[in-house]
Amino acid sequence: MCVEKTPWELVIDFHGHTCPGIAVGYRVAQLAQREMGIRPTPDSELLVKAFTQSCAVDAMQVLNKATLGRRALMIEETQQHLYQFHFTGTHELHQIRIAQEVLEHLAAFNIEGLSPREKQNKILEEVQFVLSIEESAFCHYELIPGELKKRGH
């Protein structure tokens, strides 16, 4: 019997473990999908730009099909949890910035000195925090003029 994996399970499999970072990427990737809707034309491509290299980008590779190998995922390291999504052929960017309060909460996350079970529980607690916090408290979304350009092969 073959059981299809959920999007969350696919992200965990790709990333290799569960952590708050992939939960952030999962929320961002889903929000972008919802706000962008369907592909405007069959030949348009989704491009994603992340302004920090974190676990979150793995969720975007899986859920948004924007991979580093195809150059559809670009990373410009500024250590900001800011993500831009763009369908080629359009002139708008969907920009998502993680709220400072969420980042401060996650920065305080510490599992040092905990038993394996305590570590696992703390990780799951932080993942649940990210996945359940009200969207307006999680991030700021805006639609802005602009485009992303895929870098040459």
Rank of each mutant, 00 (worst) to 15 (best):
K65C: 13
T67K: 14
E9C: 02
S54I: 00
M36T: 10
E126L: 06
E104W: 08
E9M: 05
L63M: 05
A99W: 10
V24W: 01
T78R: 09
A66F: 00
V57R: 00
L103F: 03
D43C: 10
K49T: 09
R117M: 12
L10R: 14
P145A: 13
A50Q: 00
E104K: 07
L124P: 05
T78W: 06
K150C: 06
P40C: 06
L31T: 12
A29I: 01
A29Q: 03
Q95H: 09
H86G: 02
P40W: 08
Q128F: 11
A23D: 06
I144T: 14
R39G: 05
A107E: 08
L31H: 13
G37R: 09
L93Y: 04
M60C: 00
M1E: 14
V57C: 01
F85N: 00
G152F: 14
I12H: 06
M74R: 14
E92L: 12
A32R: 03
M36Y: 08
E147H: 09
L82V: 01
K49L: 10
A108L: 09
E112C: 14
C139W: 02
L46W: 01
E118H: 10
A50R: 00
Q100K: 15
T18E: 15
L31K: 10
C55Y: 01
V57T: 01
Q84R: 01
M1K: 15
E101T: 11
F138C: 08
F138Y: 07
A137V: 11
A137T: 11
K49I: 11
F109G: 04
L106C: 04
L114V: 10
P116R: 04
I98C: 03
I12V: 15
E112Y: 13
E147I: 12
S132H: 14
L63E: 04
V28E: 00
V102G: 12
P20R: 02
Y83N: 00
K5C: 02
R97Q: 01
G37I: 08
Q80L: 12
N121K: 15
R97I: 01
T18Y: 11
E118S: 10
E77S: 13
A108H: 09
I133N: 09
S132W: 09
A107V: 05
R27W: 07
C2H: 14
E112P: 11
E76H: 14
R34W: 10
I144C: 14
A59R: 02
P40I: 08
M74A: 14
Q80G: 08
P116H: 04
